[in-house]
Structures are given as C-alpha cells and as structure tokens.
C-alpha cells in the first residue's frame, strides 16, 4: 500500500491502461440498448439547453445562438464538475464496493476507472463544441486551443476533488446529501446562465466560487474570449493545495478506507 498521496497518484498513472480499457468498455456498454447509443450523452444536454435558451436568451437580451452556445459549453463543463462532486459521493460504498472488497482492486485503480469513464463521456461533447462554435460564428483563432490546458487543469483538480469527496462520503454518510444540495445551488451560483458583468462592481466575487475558474478555463477559449491568466494561476493553486490536503487525508485514512466502505 502506498505511503502517501503522491505515490498513490504515480501508481494511478502507471496503471492507466487497466482503467482506460475498463472505462472504454463501460462507456460502450452503458448506452448499448438505446437507439442512438452514446450520442444520448450529448443529446440530453442539447435538448435541455435548447429549451432553456428559448426563454433565457430573451430575458438576457442576447441572440439565441450566442446564448445557446455559451450555456451549452457552460453546462457541459459543469457536467464534468458534477462528476467530481455530487456524482462521486457514493462511488466507493455503492458503485465500486464489490471491486474494492471482493476483487481486491486497489483504490487508485477504482478512482481512475471512474474518472476515465467520466472523461470519455465528456469527450463526446467535443465534436458538438466544434459544430456549435461554428454555428455561433465564433472567430477561429489560436485562443480556442487554450481550452485544452484548461480541460487538463480541471481534470487534474477533479482527481483530488473526487478522491476527497468519495473518501469523506464513505466515512460520513450524511455528507453526500449535503454535497448534492450544495452542487444543485452551485449551478445557479456559477456564471453559466448569466454573465458575471451583470454583477457590476461585485463582478470579481464570482471567483470566490472555485467552479467559475473551472468553467471559464474550458468555455471561454472555445467562445474566442481571452482567458484571464489569473484563472490558470487559481487552478494551479487549487491543484497544489488540493494535493497537500489529499495527502494529509490519505495518510490518515489509507488503512481505514476499506472498513468505512
């Protein structure tokens, strides 16, 4: 068993092929009995955002396509954040309990199976992003490519967030409900349906919400908006602090986790 979170992470990377093979298989199988298969991942969001945008684009006084593009990119980026938070609350003691306690699969492999499954699901949005930014008339520049480092930073942060949330919720079973409630509110507190400049002089307060940086680092480059370097700095800072906290939690809990499950 790894002694600290860093060697735990290194072994996660080392065993990535195991997790990737299983994640690919699970993603393929999940939608098999549906008519349009994995495209449902994208279609669900297309339907939701198309409907919301009809009224909200009028309320916000923005052309429909512009509003639709912004909200679709925001909502789907938030989907990734939900995977790390609200959806991760019960993965250890429900979804993957058998793998951990009956097959003896290591925790780092279980986490990477979960995260790579979610990441592969998220990748289904990428072709739709290209179509949407083309339809919305976004000027294609090198700025658009900045969504890649943004996505990587969000995913790396998602790794420690998923670790902390899944472990904590396995130990404290009330926490999952609390996180789900907070995340439901966070969708409305994060500038997805609205613009941060609508807050006027309080605009910068949105950055107190860590999900704002995550959304902006993926969404804004795709919309051709220059990303404030402060956002990358904040995401790197989250990553460092997150890994330090994860290490403390890991050292404390590494021998207890399977009993909590």
């Amino acid at each position: 068993m790894e002694k600290n979170f860093y060697s735990f992470t290194l072994n996660t990377i080392k065993n990535h092929s195991l997790a990737l093979n299983i994640a690919k298989l699970e993603t393929t199988v999940k939608y098999r009995r549906t008519l349009i298969g994995n495209f449902w991942i994208v279609l669900t969001y297309l339907i939701t955002v198309s409907i919301i945008s009809v009224i909200w684009s009028i309320v916000m006084n923005v052309p429909y396509l512009d509003y639709f593009a912004k909200v679709f990119l925001g909502f789907t980026s938030f989907y990734l954040i939900l995977s790390f938070t609200a959806q991760a609350t019960d993965i250890l003691f429900l979804q993957y309990k058998g793998l951990l306690l009956s097959l003896g699969i290591k925790l780092n492999n279980v986490l990477s199976i979960y995260l790579l499954t979610k990441f592969l699901e998220f990748l289904q949005f990428i072709p739709m992003y290209i179509i949407i930014i083309f339809l919305a008339g976004v000027e294609i520049t090198l700025t658009n490519l900045l969504f890649i480092p943004g996505l990587i930073l969000v995913f790396l942060n998602g790794y420690w967030i998923t670790f902390i949330i899944s472990i904590s919720c396995a130990r404290f079973r009330d926490l999952g409900m609390l996180i789900t409630a907070i995340m439901s509110a966070s969708i409305l507190l994060t500038p997805i349906l609205w613009d941060k400049d609508q807050l006027g002089k309080y605009e910068n307060l949105v950055y107190l919400n860590p999900f704002t940086c995550m959304i902006e680092s993926i969404r804004d480059p795709l919309l051709g908006i220059d990303v404030n370097p402060f956002i990358y700095l904040q995401l790197i800072l989250f990553l460092v602090v997150g890994f330090i906290i994860s290490d403390l939690i890991y050292r404390y809990s590494r021998k207890k986790i399977n009993f909590w499950i």
Binding site: V29, K30, R33, L99, S102, L103
Partner: peptide, 9 residues
Amino acid sequence: DIDMGMNNE
C-alpha cells in the same frame, strides 16, 4: 465473489 465486477449489459 466469483461474478463480482461483471457487467450485466
């Protein structure tokens, strides 16, 4: 647990 980890679908 012999069938643990299998995917029914």
